[in-house]
Design a protein around this nucleic acid. Structure first.
Lengths: 192, 192
DNA sequence: GGTTACATACCAACCGGACGGTAATCCGTG
DNA sequence: CACGGATTACCGTCCGGTTGGTATGTAACC
């Protein structure tokens, strides 16, 4: 990061910007998330920031891609650790939401991303692509599509509940949700 | 609404402002939801708008209260129409989300509210009070708290899925979700 | 006459992005 | 290898448009 490292590592600069941008989002929230604030936190200037991300939406896309990458990695790792093939993917999706510690920083970042997606629909689309990437291995799963969908909706609901504090969900209740999808015990009625 | 009706009906003016504000939110989205746009759509001026709602957040609070009122009314009406007492409240909560036609206007308004809540946590708190108001009759319900919570989380997940289009949920699948909570068939494992 | 319900004009601050400039690096050529 | 032009990374400043909010005035009502 010395001054001579100009052209050395543009990819590192990009990564650093995204990392710092997430920090700003975590600490200042959506209203405090400005290009100036992000630039001030990085070692580079605002001009360089705009050089790597020509627009604020582009920066948010970068952040969402980063988060999506991490999230899908976590889900796929969870799925790989799960010996039971039945409903593996959907369960991992839920488990990632239930298990991961939801820190105040996570909540703040989640709110910023949520606000961004609500304001700019294109960003919501971007987020969706990451979700779809996790779903690809579903066809090989013997679990019914209805049950899998239900678990995912449940996970999403739990996520927004954590974001806005709409429901009080105890650790026990979180744990109970995990044992929902078991082989031979379909949840939805019109399952095969 | 003639010009002579100055002092006549301040309450009507308030109601009209909220109504028009929701229209603006539906048509212009979050980025187009500005005080000027709202004022332009009403018969009153921007000054009058600020007179009734001294700040933009106050206006959003008014809108959220209005939506919350309608939503809880719908849920309570659904619950009243349901002959089966088991899980009545939670089912009504879910049914309100599943049954109500989700128009593009609803989606747009929902996004604006979502963005507002994500940016200003105080608004999320406001929304939560409306949810709590629906839950009050739960204690008289023989359904387990875990199952009721699960249905609510499911409903919330379905709502955000409709808002952002994350999952494709067929009408059949929506219908299937409704038949989840039946007496004698608890969903979560650790029910009594 | 004092308060309420508005209208009109105005402002100041914020913020995304444009711009002109500089220096380091890459690359083709001889 | 030398070298020189093109490209890329980056800087710092400035600007214009937008927007939430204010200040001042005025007419209707109690």
């Amino acid at each position: 990061m010395d001054t001579t490292a100009r052209r050395r590592a543009p990819e590192d600069t990009r990564a650093q910007i995204i990392e710092k941008a997430l920090e700003v989002a975590a600490e200042r929230g959506a209203s405090g998330f400005t290009l100036d604030a992000v630039a001030a936190r990085t070692t580079v200037s605002k001009g360089a920031l705009l050089h790597h991300f020509p627009t604020k939406i582009a920066l948010l896309e970068g952040m969402i891609d980063h988060l999506g990458q991490m999230h899908t990695d976590g889900i796929l790792a969870q799925a790989a650790r799960d010996p039971e093939p039945y409903g593996r993917s959907a369960r991992a999706y839920l488990r990632a939401t239930v298990t991961e510690p939801v820190t105040p920083q996570d909540v703040s970042i989640g709110r910023v991303v949520m606000a961004a997606c609500a304001i700019e629909p294109a960003l919501a689309q971007r987020w969706r692509t990451w979700i779809d990437r996790v779903k690809v291995d579903d066809p090989s799963d013997p679990v019914g599509a209805d049950d899998a969908l239900m678990l995912r909706l449940l996970a999403d609901g739990l996520w927004v509940s954590d974001l806005f504090g709409v429901h009080d969900v105890s650790p026990d209740q979180r744990q109970a949700l995990l044992s929902l999808l078991t082989p031979g015990h379909p949840i939805t009625a019109n399952e095969a």
